[in-house]
Write a protein that binds this DNA or RNA. Structure first.
Length: 591
RNA sequence: CGGGAAGUGGGAUAGUGGCUAAUCCGUCUGGUUUGGGGCCAGAAUAUCGGGGGUUCGAAUCCCCCCUUCCCGACCA
């Protein structure tokens, strides 16, 4: 490809809104163009990178027996009604009516579409197991797109779906994906961590997320530096240390005017936070079996030194949505905001963290303006309908495995795998006939990777001040050939053309910068675009033996004769490719 | 959805009631230059996000709306 003919523009300056490095560099390098919030066009360079990423995906999917299909982006709403997600999912899913007044949706994922397909195709256990995948557009009307391609509304996802006759089969496909996903990320040159995660709107039995650690991420990962335990904060466990046993005394009401927070109370009573029981009020939206919804005030009781994990609480009460309760809602159920406790409240579901029953006497609200209660004991002075783990792990919490202090890191979720089980097959009637002639639900799994998000994470990991530094496996071109010519000395231009032709014939993907620009512009653009192997033909290079060879990531440069250049380039491509592929290795599966 | 910020040629900015809306980058034409965004000369491109209002006069003040970004809620 000749730079002159490339459909691209590069920029020194860019819109002020771009913050993340990948966003800035992809914009400046002319890789992407934003059409609206979270909606992008992909220009030739980005398209080429995505094609390469997709090649890696095809290769790894086919290695584990995946067959490529394509499912539609516009789907009939009926199948989404059958699984219930038409009702469970809010405005993140876009709906419309076609000209015949049928309810339609834009696919935000394809479990329903695949289920609909599978129930028509699969008849017998002889057709199982099966694995199909596609690379297709998804639309999720996210309330807050951000950071370029990291979080968008329209995006391309590689999603695969496994169909099995038994749970062992699902387990095999799940583990096969676990390895295949590491292979994909390693082939693209990024390091990820697989963490156990919440199943969220997908439902199902188990899920892992593949996390790329970066400060621009929005998820929080809890890590143990000592034993390697790691988990998404949403589901992270940690070791809770009960307080030393204490003689329970009778509860005493004490005046605490104006002391509404644990910190204020702690100072006021000279007690540390773990001596308190705090009540956190959330309003949950719960979907009933008839698809109607009801609101419910949930009173979460935690020890004063702990924070509420909303995902854990939402799962404990099976809430579709959970938000902080308004004061009016608390008052309506008999609570006094700032001085509230489960004592004496009505019409509320009380959920206590599992540490609460193991705690001795605690200070809690008296449900009376200006008063707290000391010496409150679980079971005697207050109780809960549900007792389970609802506390959030954070930096400094203790590792559930080895007890060392945990770390918290930001991360981007670049992929996920779900053991769906029979959640979709039962709802949609995807059954097969087993060896005994009985109809059984198909056991499903689903597995996704966001292509654009992966691309931008690669940029996050591989860039410097000047621009991107692509891993050779997914670079838009392998070689960036810069020609510095001038009218009085046509030799560099001629040499460049000749070399370009030779590289083309050798099958090397080459971008030839044949523009009439100053050397500074050309080198700056080459740094920005990030093509890994750099060749320069100039008067100076010709006097030094021929062609200058340099890697984007290194300062060092060498000279080879024009005749040796293609061979040298092949050598470099092989070495760089091998370097990346050496990262592809078996990984240990961990729950 | 809550909080904050911003919309001025293609991009980045200046311009807080008064002349023909300014500067840098980019673009176009001609010339020059070719090892790190070079130089000279000339040119085109703006109903100042949209609508309404106040005023002799509005990019500037007021009201409504739209869009984008950031933080949160939410989300894979």
């Amino acid at each position: 490809m000749r730079f002159k003919e490339l459909f691209i523009f590069t920029a020194k300056e860019l819109p002020a809104e771009a913050q993340a490095a990948s966003h800035r560099l992809l914009l400046r390098g002319g890789y992407i163009h934003q059409a609206a919030a979270g909606i992008f066009s992909y220009l030739p360079l980005a398209r080429r990178v995505m094609n390469k990423i997709q090649q890696v995906m095809h290769r790894e999917m086919q290695k584990i027996g995946g067959q490529e299909i394509t499912m539609p982006v516009v789907l009939p709403a009926d199948i989404w009604k059958q699984t219930g997600r038409f009702y469970d999912i809010g405005s993140e899913m876009s709906r419309f009516k076609d000209r015949k007044d049928h309810d339609m949706v834009l696919a935000m994922t394809h479990e329903e579409a695949l289920g609909d397909l599978a129930r028509k195709v699969i008849r017998s256990y002889r057709q199982l197991p099966a694995l199909v995948y596609h690379i297709q557009t998804k639309w999720r009307d996210d309330p807050r797109p951000r950071a370029g391609l990291i979080r968008v509304r329209e995006f391309t996802m590689k999603d695969s779906y496994s169909l099995d006759a038994d749970w062992e089969g699902l387990d095999r496909q799940y583990r096969a994906h676990y390895q295949a996903y590491f292979n994909i990320f390693h082939s693209c040159g990024i390091d990820v961590l697989a963490v156990k995660s919440d199943t969220g709107m997908m439902g199902g039995k188990m899920a892992h997320e593949f996390m790329y650690l970066t400060p621009v991420g929005e998820d929080t990962i809890i890590l143990c530096p000592s034993c390697g335990y790691h988990s998404n904060r949403q589901v992270a466990e940690f070791k809770k240390v009960p307080l030393p046993a204490e003689e329970p005394a009778a509860p005493v009401k004490i005046a605490t005017p104006g002391k509404k927070t644990i910190a204020d109370l702690g100072d006021f009573l000279s007690l540390s936070p773990e001596k308190f029981a705090k009540a956190v009020f959330m309003t949950a939206r719960v979907v009933k079996p008839d698809h109607t919804e009801e609101s419910l005030l949930v009173t979460a009781v935690l020890r004063g030194d702990m924070e509420l994990n909303e995902t854990k609480l939402a799962n404990a009460v099976r809430a579709k949505e959970l938000r902080p309760a308004l004061d009016e809602e608390i008052i309506a159920c008999g609570g006094v905001p700032g001085y509230a406790s489960p004592r004496g409240m009505k019409n509320t579901l009380v959920v206590a963290d599992d540490l609460i029953p193991q705690s001795g006497p605690l200070v809690c609200g008296a449900n009376e303006e200006g008063f707290h209660l000391t010496g409150a004991v679980y079971g005697r002075d207050f109780s809960a309908e549900i007792v389970t783990d609802i506390a959030a792990a954070g930096a400094g919490s203790l590792c559930p495995v080895c007890g060392a202090p945990l770390l918290a890191e930001k991360a981007v979720e670049v992929g996920n795998i779900f053991k769906l089980g029979t959640r979709y097959s039962e709802a949609l009637g995807c059954t097969f006939q087993d060896q005994e002639g009985r109809q059984q639900p198909i056991i499903m799994g689903s597995y996704g990777i966001g292509v654009g998000r992966l691309l931008s994470c690669v940029v996050e990991q591989h860039h410097d001040e000047g621009g991107i530094i692509w891993p050779i496996t997914i670079a838009p071109f392998q070689v960036h050939l810069t020609v510095l010519g001038d009218k009085t000395s046509p030799e560099p231009a001629e040499g460049g053309e000749e070399l370009y032709r030779a590289l083309q014939e050798a099958g090397v993907e080459t971008l030839l910068d044949d523009r009439q620009e100053s050397p500074g512009v050309k080198f700056a653009d080459a740094d920005l675009l990030g093509i890994p192997i750099r060749l320069t033909v100039s008067r100076r290079s010709l006097t030094q033996g021929g062609v200058e060879v340099k890697l984007r990531r290194e300062e060092g440069r060498s000279f080879v004769s024009p005749g040796e250049t293609v061979g040298k380039v092949r050598e470099l491509i092989a070495a760089l490719t091998q370097e990346i592929e050496a990262r592809v290795r078996p990984v240990e599966y961990r729950e």
